[in-house]
């Protein structure tokens, strides 16, 4: 029985389907061995910036990797606008559509500082679970005698309403606890509506904490996914024109050609797995494309409320809590 760790378990990307390795019986027969796992498991951070992160999880089962992905998407909480009180809206956008647009604006406020709003009947909420914003703005004429009728900036004031126009209204102690710079929309230039003179907004917005399962607006990530590490093996020496063609069939930087004109795999990691070699049957005979089955390349892009790595950690914690709950219930059953 082939075990993870003995050698890299692979799936082979054939022309029309993904084939598992013939000696590889998959995870079904495998028993989880804690020592093996400890020995084989690796986490490597490849790239990291303020909003996104790329890291590798090696030596885990797809079930676990997928659980992280799913939790990041739909169970890590974030704040979003949930209640919109429209006192005046004379723009051309209907109230419901406008409310929907507000909901989708990502907020910077750290959800860990707030509680879930539990009382459905209490619309207004309190300072622990609700953030209040307002948008009071009116479009007016700036100059009526502009020659170029497309020069809106010269003609109108406030004809584009952006997320930056939303103002935070601190409640209770919120003003002292938090800084305005860390509460509002993640991006200043999210267009909410276009306006013409006479159009006006007078709106109160209430943001609460929620999870992506309830509505996509509560999802803290714009992207949380993984892919398997690609691997390319050249079965035969490929040189000359064929080598150049081969190079084209893969993502840039994957295949390089050495001085003697022989193609070699430089770095398969960033291959898109487009499998375009199969377009040239004579070429594809000499190439094997595969992916490492237990090497997960994670990509997380945060919307701004968290740092990307925090999202992953929160996801791990969430999974741990879930396990705890399950264990507790199992123990309870046993007793």
């Amino acid at each position: 029985m082939a075990k993870i760790g003995d050698k890299k378990p692979k799936v082979i990307l054939e022309e029309f389907k993904i084939k598992e390795n013939s000696e590889d019986y998959g995870f079904a027969d495998e028993q989880f061995n804690r020592e093996d796992f400890k020995r084989n498991f690796k986490l490597k951070v490849i790239k990291k910036s303020n909003l996104d992160i790329e890291f590798d999880l090696i030596g885990i089962t797809p079930a676990i990797a997928n659980a992280f992905r799913r939790i990041m998407l739909s169970e890590v909480p974030s704040m979003a606008i949930e209640k919109v009180y429209i006192y005046n809206n004379t723009s051309i956008i209907p109230d419901e559509v406008l409310a929907h647009r507000f909901g989708l604006i990502p907020l910077k406020a750290d959800p860990r500082l707030f509680e879930y709003k539990l009382d459905e009947k209490d619309e207004e909420g309190n300072e622990l679970d609700t953030l209040e914003f307002k948008l009071e703005i009116k479009c007016t004429w700036k100059n009526k005698d502009v020659k170029d009728s497309r020069n809106f900036d010269a003609m109108y004031k406030n004809h584009n309403i952006y997320s930056e126009h939303i103002k935070w209204v601190p409640r209770g102690k919120q003003g002292t606890l938090y800084n305005e710079a860390n509460i509002g929309p993640c991006d200043d230039k999210i267009l909410i509506s276009k306006m013409r003179p006479g159009h006006e907004f007078n709106i109160k917005l209430l943001a609460v904490k929620g999870i992506g399962k309830d509505h996509a607006k509560f999802s803290p990530v714009s992207l949380a996914t993984y892919r398997l590490l690609p691997e390319i093996t050249l079965l035969k020496e490929i040189r000359g024109k064929d080598a150049q063609l081969l190079q084209k069939c893969f993502s840039p930087g994957v295949i390089e050609i050495d001085k003697s004109g022989i193609a070699y795999v430089k770095n398969a990691r960033y291959d898109n797995c487009s499998r375009n070699v199969y377009r040239y049957p004579e070429l594809s005979k000499n190439v094997e494309i595969s992916r490492v089955r237990n090497h997960f390349i994670f990509n997380i892009e945060s919307l701004g409320a968290y740092k990307p790595e925090e999202i992953f950690i929160l996801a791990v914690k969430t999974l741990k809590n879930k396990c705890d709950v399950l264990l507790e219930e199992l123990n309870f059953e046993n007793k």
């Binding site: 799936v11 029309f16 389907k17 993904i18 797809p62 079930a63 997928n66 659980a67 992905r69 499998r275």
Partner: peptide
Amino acid sequence: TGEPLEAY
């Protein structure tokens, strides 16, 4: 399941 689908 998190596993790659057999078919493209």
